[in-house]
Simulated assay, not measured.
Amino acid sequence: MAQQAAKIKKRRLQDDGAWGYLFIAVALVVYALFTAYPVVSAFIISFQDYKPLGSTFIGFDNYVSTFHSELFWKSIRNTVVYTVLTVPVALFLSFSVAILILPLKKWMQTAFKAIYYLPVVASGVALSVVWLWIYDPMPEGIFNKLIGLFGAHNQNWLGTTTYSMLSLVIMAWLSSHGAAIIIYLAALLGIDESYYEAADLDGAGFLQKLWHIVVPSLKPTTLFLLVTSVIGSFQVFQNAYLMTGGGPDHATTMVGLLIFDNAFKYFEFGKAAAQSLILALIIAVISLFQFKFLGKDVEY
């Protein structure tokens, strides 16, 4: 009887396992078709002079030409500068807004979260058109009107090497904080109230609570947002493509835009594939260092 019961239990577990594999089969097929296969194909293409009707194996020539390309290294520098200038400020602004929203009533929190998240679901092309209007070099442009109030002359914000990168950075500072604000706000709501009560008994002020309770409690959230923000910043494409096209004089050419141009403008698919893999490696190394040096005392 015991053996028969064991066999029935084993058969039931096997059936459950089969159903489990069946349920995840769709996800595995989608992953294989749209993630694994493109990555493997890009790796193979990176060693070829790719042509739709016949490719030639050229070894590491695409990688060698990439590493000898001044434009590639300039795009790396532009991307690093853009990341260093945008990510810390964006996280600080998102954190500050979340702190300001936290004491409000629930319905007001919901209203502000919806307002700040709205640009995330809006069309990036539409938002870029709005920013093109803001940066209009004519006196009608909002930025030129603003600096005109202080007696400054009109500036060609997107058409000069002096201001083009700064314009993209300001655009990043003032937009698309919705997701980070909501994540920070959820983490703030998860902090145990007893910590604040103990701090009140000790006579701690707002800044002391912020530094000794809030900041340490939000380390996992901050690390997550930092890693994802850096990854997104290194992959930035839309802003540079729609606002400046990488110009002037490649002052705003990011790595993502360079890969796009090589693939769909110059039809050098092998070089574009090699550069995309190099970019993926750079992002992986940076993420590894972030987890290693910033995540030492982070508890999940």
Rank of each mutant, 00 (worst) to 15 (best):
S217V: 01
F112Q: 09
N239H: 05
V169H: 04
T162N: 15
L91P: 00
Q238F: 08
K145A: 15
A172R: 10
E70N: 11
V130L: 12
Q14P: 00
D261E: 13
L185H: 05
K74F: 03
K7P: 00
H153C: 07
F112P: 06
G151H: 06
G295Y: 07
I213M: 00
Q155K: 14
S164G: 12
Y63A: 14
F289I: 12
A172N: 12
K265P: 02
L118H: 01
L189W: 00
K113N: 10
A90I: 06
I182V: 15
P88A: 09
D200T: 02
L102P: 00
G54F: 13
G232T: 10
D297Q: 05
G141Q: 11
F224D: 01
W211N: 03
V215R: 05
V215I: 14
V129P: 01
L223Q: 06
G295S: 09
I181C: 10
L100P: 06
K106Q: 10
H212I: 02
I182F: 08
A199H: 00
G148Q: 11
D200C: 01
F72T: 04
R12H: 03
P137C: 13
I259Y: 03
D61V: 10
G203S: 05
Q275M: 14
I213H: 00
A2H: 01
Y63G: 13
A240C: 09
K145Q: 15
L223T: 02
